[in-house]
Design a protein around this nucleic acid. Structure first.
Length: 110
DNA sequence: CTCGTGACGGCGA
DNA sequence: ATCGCCGCCACGA
């Protein structure tokens, strides 16, 4: 159910929707692209709560270390589901959420 | 306005 | 390569 979305969150969602299928981007990269290097954590918080009513490929946002769900996401934050979706797009994810060929799958950004 | 929180990230041990 | 400890930032109470 859509709720109020901050300008920051809208910018994040917009950036996330620009990621091509089969490619990934990190929280940090998004923050940097938004002109807020270092706000990676805030990006994660935004994705966790943001909901403008439209679907967004959250699963394409990963941690800088090439792990699904980020560097500190627990096994409960929907990691399984996101990993499943990434595999559906052709990416190979190890049992411990590592993205094989991360450097190659990483999307440089626009 | 201050305080606590967390889908992060970098660096040192 | 792994683990833990801080620092950053936006957000909500």
């Amino acid at each position: 159910m859509p709720g109020p979305v901050t300008a920051f969150a809208r910018a994040v969602l917009r950036r996330v929707r620009a990621i091509p299928p089969g490619r990934v981007t990190t929280y940090g990269d998004i923050a940097a692209d938004l002109g807020r290097p270092g706000a990676a954590r805030a990006v994660g918080a935004a994705l966790r709560t943001a909901d403008d009513g439209r679907p967004a490929p959250y699963h394409r946002v990963v941690g800088a270390d090439g792990r699904v769900g980020g560097a500190s996401a627990g096994e409960d934050a929907g990691v399984r589901e996101r990993a499943r979706r990434l595999r559906a797009e052709g990416l190979r994810i190890t049992s411990d959420a590592r993205i094989l060929g991360f450097a190659n799958a990483r999307w440089p950004g626009r």
